Simulated assay, not measured.
Amino acid sequence: MNKRPKLNIPKTRFEKLFDLVATLVFLAWIGYLLIVWGQLPDEVPAHYDSAGVVDRWGSKWELLLLPIISCLLTVFLAFLEKHPEWHNYLNLTETNIEFQFKNSRMLLNVIKNEALLFFAYISFQSIQVALGKASSLGFAFLPIYLGILFGSMAFFIVRSVKNK
């Protein structure tokens, strides 16, 4: 298939629900940031090492970077979600094209929303550290984050390969 058709495949209930949850978390994140802004010290955690310990402090204005990055990433991935005909496939045929498009779109949906949720968690934890209510992201954060992210990718890749 050199020229792939554009199929109109409605979003699944799962995709709609995950988008809704991520949107609500994003709005709560921005709301929380606005509420605590006046209480934040001038310096807040700006970077963490692989063990989740703060290894650089920066201006509280740096806390605005994660919501901005999340917003840009979400818009970009949502745009790509709408165009599964642009994605790369290993075994695309006329009989499995609808499944493959939906599977690829769901992969992007999951990655998009997981990234937003993880960025929100990092921002929340950074605020907690800045306010003296926590000391780090936690040692388990990085392995959990990577496990969920790569586990999700593996799940959808395996589904794609199995559906020849």
Rank of each mutant, 00 (worst) to 15 (best):
M1Y: 13
N2L: 08
K3I: 08
R4S: 02
P5T: 01
K6P: 02
L7D: 06
L7N: 08
K11F: 11
T12S: 15
T12W: 04
D19E: 14
L20M: 13
V21D: 09
V21T: 06
A22Q: 05
L24C: 12
I30M: 05
A46C: 03
Y48S: 01
D49R: 09
S50H: 10
S50V: 15
G52W: 01
V54R: 00
G58C: 02
L63F: 13
L65N: 09
L65F: 15
P67R: 04
I68R: 03
V75I: 15
V75N: 04
A78G: 11
F79A: 04
H83F: 11
H83I: 06
H83S: 11
P84L: 08
P84C: 09
P84N: 10
N88M: 07
Y89M: 06
L90Q: 12
N91G: 10
N91P: 14
L92I: 07
E94S: 14
N96Q: 13
E98Y: 01
E98S: 12
F99I: 03
F99A: 04
S104E: 09
R105Q: 14
R105G: 03
V110N: 00
K112Q: 08
E114F: 14
A115W: 10
L117M: 11
L117A: 05
L117Q: 08
F118D: 03
F119S: 10
F119D: 03
A120S: 15
Y121C: 07
I122K: 05
I122H: 07
S123I: 02
S123V: 08
F124T: 05
S126T: 04
S126M: 01
Q128S: 12
V129I: 12
V129L: 02
G132E: 08
K133C: 10
S135W: 10
S135K: 14
S136K: 06
S136E: 05
L137R: 00
L137P: 00
G138T: 04
F139W: 12
Y145K: 10
Y145A: 14
G147R: 11
F150I: 12
S152W: 11
A154D: 05
F156T: 02
F156N: 03
F156Y: 15
R159S: 06
V161C: 03
